[in-house]
Design a protein around this nucleic acid. Structure first.
Lengths: 267, 267
DNA sequence: GCTTGGCCTTGACCCAGATCAAGGCCAGCA
DNA sequence: TGCTGGCCTTGATCTGGGTCAAGGCCAAGC
């Protein structure tokens, strides 16, 4: 189904080279104000929500804030997993590569997303900023200390990991058994259920406009399709008046219920 | 790619009906000897390995042993998630269904596998025994108590969940971007890395014969293919002298390294 | 030994989505 | 104002794997 071709191979090599020569993400505040967590807008959406205000100082002291520019990779698959990350602003794509350049995007990490749960020696995926991203970075050892001090944090991480597993299984169903049309419908419905840029859920009846920080190529790699199929399928939804596409990064859902039916395979 | 057809729909309905009328799995020992855990052969492979011998009695008292016959479903997707399970013998397939009967097998649970991590209200997948299966069943509330009493157990569950996530991401890469040939090679290599029936790893140099408790249909649903493609691809591997197929449930890997290359997309 | 039914294999053909190719749109920049 | 480059769209064509169909293998039951 997927064919390896020269361009992809060359791109993979080129891409590996640029990663090596690419400037590192900028650490903006290694000795920051310990009260930073108190005012963190991402807290309600993140694992940090289980830490009470008085304990926040200890949490803040363990973290370093890092900014990442769009297009820059801040986690590389296979690298020693020395850090955990918590996204506090922006969106990143998480992906795995095959040697010839074929890419699978395994998820998009928005505000509040906790990254780096893998306990194997190396990271299981790469992460690249789609928009300007801010992250809190913890070293493996410091997080271990935090988990011992705050059992609630460990419970929360288990909860987060369990939810991720459910999402991953749903994605396996999508990749293994859904048609292109069903995949796109599922993607739109899932995106509509997010607060813009956030992990949380929208209140019922919110405006059905969704923002897409990723390109058509990223969507294709997330859904196991090609750019062309993503584009064609969206065009068809538009022709059928199920969606509107005011710009490349904005989509309005005009018939949520109908899309949901398609997404669940009920057509 | 995948087409919905009448037969599948009818099968789905039929299958739903049989599930409803099917005899429940037999609870064989609800007031069992509390020392049962001490002699449990699955312990070294399971989360229970973090509980010390003296504490095993408390663990054993919280669980109920259940036997499930091949073909019987002991977890149904969407049902209220009241229990957690630990497989102590046999193998089960875990799967999700679409309304028209399309199936995605999300994994195979062997000895030591911990099931039911999902914290959402309902189970995220169904589970059906492939061989005679024995499981330890914990109620949600009892496990909660155990986790409070044994923090090490909670840490272990987080570790297990993290590993599952890594596996799930690898499977997304397989389902989204690998060819049929690469999928089958990956499947064989993964299976070869398991102790027969177990979650653990084989020692290096072990005999490269693998046992498949599942049908070709289960493999197809696991790899996002059809029965015919699985069969054809295995036949081709055999013709290429990469494997031998002494019986439908046994495969011998004759060229492990070559298969591994195919599995990782290096062809 | 024959029948039955559940799997598995194999061949012929088909089609959803990939590939190939051409051109459009638009923001940034000189 | 026009040029450039990165995306995106759309049409034509191709193909890997799905679908359909026929038959083989074999264990269980009589």
């Amino acid at each position: 189904m997927v064919r390896l071709y020269q361009v992809a191979l060359i791109y993979a090599i080129w891409s590996a080279l640029t990663v090596m020569t690419r400037p590192r993400p900028l650490v903006i505040d290694s000795h920051r104000d310990a009260s930073v967590c108190v005012h963190c807008q991402a807290r309600p959406f993140s694992v940090c929500s289980v830490i009470s205000d008085p304990d926040l100082e200890q949490l803040g002291a363990a973290a370093v804030t890092v900014s990442v520019q769009p297009g820059h990779t801040f986690i590389t698959e296979g690298d020693p997993a020395e850090h955990f990350f918590n996204v506090t602003a922006g969106t990143a794509k998480l992906f795995k590569l095959l040697p010839d350049g074929r890419r699978q995007v395994t998820g998009f990490a928005g505000v509040g997303y906790f990254l780096g749960l893998a306990v194997t020696s190396g990271y299981a995926f790469s992460a690249e900023a789609l928009e300007p991203v801010r992250i809190c970075r913890f070293s493996r050892t410091k997080l271990r200390t935090l988990l011992d001090d705050f059992p609630a944090l460990e419970k929360k991480l288990l909860e987060v990991a369990s939810n991720e597993l459910v999402v991953a299984q749903e994605q396996m169903l999508l990749l293994g058994r859904k048609t292109a049309r069903e995949r796109l419908a599922s993607f739109l419905i899932d995106r509509a259920a997010l607060f813009p840029h956030c992990v949380g859920r929208v209140p019922a009846g919110a405006k059905e406009q969704i923002h897409l920080p990723m390109t058509r190529g990223d969507i294709a790699d997330y859904l196991g399709l090609t750019i062309e199929t993503v584009s064609r399928t969206l065009s068809r939804f538009k022709a059928e008046r199920m969606i509107d596409i005011p710009s490349n990064s904005e989509i309005v859902l005009l018939q949520h219920a109908a899309l949901e039916k398609i997404a669940t395979g009920m057509t």
